[in-house]
Amino acid sequence: MTPVEVEDVEIRLLLEGVQQVYGYDFRDYAAASIKRRLTQWLAESGFDTFSQAQSRLLRDPELFFSLLQGITVNVTEMFRDPSFFKALREQVVPFLKTYPFVKIWHAGCASGEEAYSMAILLNEEGMAGRYRMYATDIDEAVLQKAAAGVMPMAEMQKYTRNYQKAGGKASFADYYTARYDRAILSADLKQSIVFAPHNLAADAEFGEMNMVLCRNVMIYFKPALKERCLDLFDNSLLSGGFLCLGLKETLEKRKMSARYDELVAGTRIYRKRYG
């Protein structure tokens, strides 16, 4: 066996142990990315090998939580892919407005950047008070961060640019208060968002959704887990509801694709058919 193969074995053993001891299941995560994240954690941890780290990891929850942060890190930004948010505003919101109230599931929301982007967009389109967004993530620490709604001030310039490109109608600075190096998002944006833990690998669907967003989360999953997620989303969505994926994620070649139409080619916004 080559050293690379030995390390792959160590990682499989570690993920197996983590699942049994802590209940977090990363065995269905695509290997290349998770290895990169684990290797980075290992380099910072001071352990020489995963086998060496494993003994401590399985006994020391605090050490495990540092690993968990490393594995689940999902970096995103406000109005990531402005063209997507523009399409949402122009093509999807007109449909949503026809309902008295809409429910949205944002799966894998990480620290909330995209959830808050959605709230800004919906409020600007006159839907304030007419929606509830369930923003979920596997990592409870990151959800606390999301619920706090505090962003690094250094990112605001980029977010402002994204917002404008996404068809933003106001001044982006109206949505936050600068405090030293942090931007505190306006409380109105939080009113309709419920942050809650949810594990895509183990938990059940959310019923009766008008929209499900899950962008750049499933790219980290092996095909079987990806299929599980798509089934969850399909079962959660009402007919006429919208499924929004990352720009490099597609329903092509998926079983459920027969029930969905892409709203505008390339946006990865799919609408579930009636009947």
């Binding site: 792959d8 695509a30 290997a31 290349a32 990315s33 990169r36 994240r37 890190v73 999902n74 970096v75 995103t76 750049n216 790219i219 980290y220 990352g246 490099k248």
Partner: peptide
């Protein structure tokens, strides 16, 4: 990936 497939990441 090991099996010779491509993967993308938004890390």
């Amino acid at each position: 990936e090991r099996e010779g497939r491509l993967a993308l990441s938004a890390d």
